[in-house]
């Protein structure tokens, strides 16, 4: 039997790896990948808590379904923004997309 804490430690580690990717990567698409890792870590937490604490209720899976839909929307819009920025500025480096910098 796997203790609940193993899942929680695993998802905490995955979340931290994703956070590092978001903060440290230069490429905007790599930042999106880091966000995906973080969202997946959250999903594992939600499913693990549902399975161990409230397996008869439906709130956990319902929330995970919403996270899936939101993640799909986020990737679609994010990639569209990156491709649009690439067309106009010829770069996908987050440092160089600084139009709004004062």
């Amino acid at each position: 039997m796997i203790p609940l804490s193993w899942y929680l430690v695993f998802s905490a580690a995955l979340f931290s790896i994703g956070l590092f990717g978001v903060l440290a990567r230069k490429n905007a698409i790599a930042i999106l990948m880091g966000v995906e890792l973080m969202l997946n870590a959250v999903n594992i937490n939600l499913i693990a808590f549902w399975r161990y604490l409230t397996p008869t209720q439906v709130a956990g899976p319902a929330f995970v379904t919403m996270v899936f839909a939101t993640a799909a929307a986020e990737v679609a819009v994010g990639l569209a923004l990156i491709i649009s920025a690439y067309r106009r500025r010829n770069t996908v480096t987050a440092d160089e997309i600084d139009l709004l910098k004062g």
Binding site: L19, L23, A24, R25
Partner: peptide
């Protein structure tokens, strides 16, 4: 491929 402040992110 990492920014200058990657140690801060780590």
């Amino acid at each position: 491929q990492l920014t200058r402040f990657w140690w801060g992110a780590a």
